[in-house]
Nucleic acid binder design. Structure first.
Length: 298
DNA sequence: GATTCGTGGCT
DNA sequence: TAGCCAAGAAT
């Protein structure tokens, strides 16, 4: 039926147009895939690649990262954003050493138990690193299915049960553990994500280049505008996020403890700077030395 | 379920 | 220009 045609065409498109990303190379290994998936959370892949190469060279195994200071991970994270991910990556590497023999665990349940790993990342690593045909649902998959199948410009604000069910139905049928079915499922997962990232993008979709334009319910209906609750933007100016980011930027640049007076300018109000400093310490991203000096955690 | 959490490119 | 959005997770 329609799903089968969608899969066939999208998989064929991916074979032709998919990007040659380093973590897609056959010899990348589970650790490289794991790193790439955490780094890619809410982050465009173009920004991930240089940081990923840096980390892979510096910490080629979970044990190598676990042996480093967490602050080194935070510093090497640079400006990728959401720096708690760097800390959780370090924690996850420690768990891998202590409980999994220094390897990335192979089952979705074990992956889900790692810090910084949710439903998406667990499924993605299981699929892309170990060939387990999990249902991978990210923002790209949700948008492609919302358009092609449901005829809507955008999916719901939050992932719904109906969307997970739809993504499950979109997967090729699993006839036991037949290897060809597994392969098709694994290709489908990455191919549909790639279509969402390159063609079926949120704004300015390139339907002229889309391999399933004639099958797409949204395109066939004339690409009707989004109807639904307003998609709230993320506030930035004057927020704690901005101040936390500025504090961390200063600490990354200094390789010795930074006095509080050097952090004052991180925000317009001293009270906010102090509040953000507290929250960064609580998160484990900043280590206080006495009352007036701070550094990345050793 | 609704919020919070970075950063920067693109329209 | 100002807002939208990106291979989400944790609380």
């Amino acid at each position: 039926m329609m799903m089968r045609a969608l899969r066939r065409r999208i998989n064929a498109w991916y074979a032709r147009a998919g990007r040659a990303l380093p973590w897609r190379e056959p010899d990348c290994g589970p650790w490289g895939v794991f790193l790439s998936e955490v780094m890619a959370q809410q982050t465009p892949l173009a920004r991930v690649e240089p940081i990923w190469r840096d980390w892979m060279q510096r910490w080629p195994t979970p044990a190598a990262l676990a042996a480093a200071a967490p602050g080194d991970a935070v510093r090497a994270w640079g400006r990728l954003g959401y720096p708690r991910r760097a800390l959780r990556l370090h924690e996850a590497a420690t768990v891998m050493v202590e409980r999994h023999g220094g390897d990335v665990p192979t089952t979705p349940a074990e992956l889900l138990a790692l810090p910084g790993v949710g439903a998406y990342t667990a499924a993605a690593v299981a699929c892309f690193a170990f060939g387990i045909p999990e249902v991978v649902v990210d923002t790209n998959v949700r948008r492609v299915l919302a358009r092609t199948v449901e005829g809507k410009a955008f999916p719901h604000l939050t992932l719904t049960r109906a969307e997970t069910d739809l993504a499950t139905r979109a997967m090729p049928a699993q006839r036991h553990t037949e290897s060809s079915a597994r392969d098709e499922a694994n290709v489908w997962n990455v191919a549909v994500m790639e279509l969402g990232a390159l063609v079926c993008v949120a704004r300015g979709p390139r339907c002229e280049e889309c391999p399933v334009a004639d099958l797409c319910a949204w395109n066939v209906a004339g690409r009707p505008a989004y109807e639904g609750p307003p998609r709230r933007g993320q506030a930035w100016h004057g927020t704690d996020r901005q101040v936390r980011g500025e504090i961390l930027r200063r600490l990354r640049e200094e390789h010795r403890p930074v006095p509080l007076t050097a952090l004052d300018g991180a925000g317009p109000e001293r009270a906010q700077v102090l509040r953000c400093l507290d929250s960064l310490v609580a998160d484990g991203l900043v280590e206080p030395l006495g009352r007036n000096r701070f550094r990345l955690p050793a």
